[in-house]
Design a protein around this nucleic acid. Structure first.
Lengths: 138, 138
DNA sequence: ATTTATTACTTGTATATTGCAAGTGATTTT
DNA sequence: AAAATCACTTGCAATATACAAGTAATAAAT
């Protein structure tokens, strides 16, 4: 269900085959902003992903080692999803997407300050963001 | 046919609604590598995009001012597609995707040297790439 | 203890997008 | 004038998405 054979050896094509759709990067975005999410947390996001799509995207991301499932410390009924290192390393991609959008579209007020920061010293912003997220892996 | 209402104000979501699919960034990639392409050039790419999808993606990219159609200097039967400034500004996104893929997947030999260059001095690599492409706009 | 609510999903069905093969009309080459 | 090339379009099957509802396991409330 998840994978057939590669279209090509192009790294961009390979990447798009995994997360090149309208939803996967939003799941990854949520995990970067909120560090850990339950299934229900994803459903609560503004974009209103359908539950069957969420389930299928989470599976693909998990199969490709971009996210992992963890047990919730407080409830056996809940599952926590978290980014792996491989998932965290997608941060620069999301930053560049945000910076591109900021040039050509209106940005919500509450994002302005963080985008300004990213723009101001991109290299450092990315490095620190990744570093912080990787600390959370332990 | 192209646009309904936005899912959200999130810049990442906005971007994905335009080019968040398996094909659009490959079209943009081709235009970055080859500067200008005819319809047939896109069809020749390794990934073998279907012609109806190509037509629909080109339309969306054009509607969103990411590419433009130009007349071919040598033939009235051909159409040239080229990136706009807005399209060129997607270069950093493609670079980061490539660098991510390079960490986790095998890269074709002929791409190794350029990816090494990008990795070595990312900021400069991106700036120069964009500069060069923008020169081609005149 | 038993009902009620939450949780992470699954299932069913309608609609939209993609994939593939073939076709069309305008040019261009022979 | 005929054949080839060009940028697409069309038709249809396959797949993916959207929306609504359902299920089994756990947890909370009574």
């Amino acid at each position: 269900m998840a994978s057939s054979k590669k279209r090509s050896e192009c790294p961009i094509s390979t990447s798009l085959e995994i997360w090149g759709d309208k939803w996967s990067l939003l799941i990854i975005r949520d995990l970067m902003f909120k560090k850990q999410c339950t299934y229900g947390d994803f459903l609560k996001s503004e974009e209103k992903i359908a539950t069957n799509i969420l389930a299928s995207r989470l599976l693909v991301l998990e199969e490709n080692n971009i996210i992992v499932k963890l047990e919730h410390p407080e409830s056996k009924a809940k599952v926590l999803y978290r980014l792996t290192e491989k998932g965290i390393e997608l941060f620069p991609v999301l930053v560049e997407i945000s910076l591109w959008a900021e040039k050509y579209y209106d940005i919500p007020k509450e994002r302005e300050s963080i985008i300004a920061k990213a723009k101001n010293n991109k290299t450092e912003f990315i490095a620190k963001g990744i570093q912080k997220m990787k600390e959370g892996l332990n």
